[in-house]
């Protein structure tokens, strides 16, 4: 069956936040797929909807946000004896507090959050919080869960796991906490690991260690990773397929080589031009470009293409009127821009 490697399919996902000041369309029609074992990079500036996408998939969008439209299909592996069909769950249809989504959260789909400093409860030990996750999804005793937690800590390269397990988060360094978070996330062998800027709050050396660790774990455990970041260097290193988000929409989607060597959307092009490259200065003296302007006010998304006010190639009368269609310009390469119509 064709769908066999499909893990997650997001279709026309719209998550909006209903604030006093107005409605923020954090996600305004997002489409993408993640295949089994694949690493998908999600790139974009702050506020483009990357984190909201992650939270929408887990159904933990904070108040007053709400998924208003779209589908998130999770393809669970077929139960060995019952049928050949894959078991499909539409996550948007589930009660966000119900048992079904809770058995998926932390078990099938796990999250490694952005802030290792504040993502662990300050008043519980690391072990307490990992054991809790294990007991929740696996039928094991407390003692077995503790064994398993120590094993997981060892797996993520935590020094002296049998002692660290009884430490409180504030006794651990940022890198150690993030290893702890990864151990917790992987403790149930999820099919999909959502890493929401897992290294943003860490220093460069620790970042490199954590990235290496994640690559290793992916090879060993074979889960898919949805890697959210604004760091294009990390994308190049970690991912196979990339989606570029802007103002709650996927503006370009392609494999990682295409994104870096043949970007089509003006936004992707501008993003790439804004990173410095070693050795570039000797060949052509070029100023490092920045994208003019900043992300528009979320209450008032521009009409037409939401990027047009900042776009250097905009066509007046077209870009500010018409919403650009999603155009397939190559195998697996799509972009939302009228230039390629």
């Amino acid at each position: 069956m064709e769908n066999n490697h499909l893990l997650l399919e997001v279709k026309n996902l719209k998550t909006h936040f209903f604030l006093d000041e107005g409605t923020v369309r954090a996600l305004d029609g997002v489409d993408f797929v993640i295949k089994r074992g694949q690493t998908l990079g999600v790139v974009g500036e702050s506020g483009c909807g990357k984190s909201v996408t992650a939270r929408s998939i887990l159904r933990i969008v904070p108040q007053p946000g709400r998924i208003v439209d779209g589908e998130i299909m999770l393809y669970l592996p077929a139960q060995s004896n019952h049928s050949t069909l894959t078991n499909v769950v539409n996550l948007t249809r589930l009660n966000p507090r119900g048992t079904q989504i809770r058995s998926i959260r932390g078990c099938r789909i796990a999250l490694v959050p952005q802030e290792p400093m504040t993502s662990l409860s300050p008043v519980h030990t690391l072990g307490n919080q990992i054991v809790e996750a294990i007991v929740l999804h696996q039928e094991v005793s407390q003692a077995e869960a503790r064994e398993k937690a120590i094993y997981m800590l060892d797996l993520v390269g935590m020094p002296q796991p049998s002692r660290t397990i009884d430490r409180y988060p504030h006794e651990l360094s940022g890198g150690m906490r993030q290893r702890g978070m990864i151990a917790m996330a992987l403790s149930c062998h999820p099919s999909l690991l959502i890493a929401d800027e897992p290294t943003t709050a860490l220093d460069v050396t620790t970042e490199a260690q954590i990235l290496k660790l994640m690559q290793r774990l992916q090879q060993e455990l074979g889960m898919a990773i949805m890697f959210i970041t604004h760091n294009l260097g990390v994308v190049a290193r970690m991912t196979e397929h990339v989606i570029v988000m802007y103002m709650g929409k996927v503006v370009e989607e392609a494999d990682v080589d295409t994104i870096f060597h043949n970007p089509k959307h003006p936004y992707t092009q501008a993003l790439l031009k804004s990173i410095p490259r070693l050795g570039q200065r000797t060949r052509e003296r070029r100023r490092l470009e920045s994208i003019s302007g900043s992300v528009p006010d979320p209450y008032s998304i521009p009409k037409g293409c939401s990027f047009h006010p900042r776009c250097s190639q905009r066509i007046v009368g077209l870009c500010d009127q018409e919403e650009p269609p999603n155009i397939e310009i190559g195998p697996g390469h799509k972009t939302r821009c009228v230039l390629y119509r």
């Binding site: 809770r102 959260r105 993502s119 662990l120 409860s121 919080q129």
Partner: peptide, 26 residues
Amino acid sequence: NKPYVETARAKGLEEGKLIWKYPVRV
């Protein structure tokens, strides 16, 4: 709204349980 509450929620913990165990405790 602290991240550790979201972590607990992302684990799949039941809402009532997680509220009493984590944020209430703090």
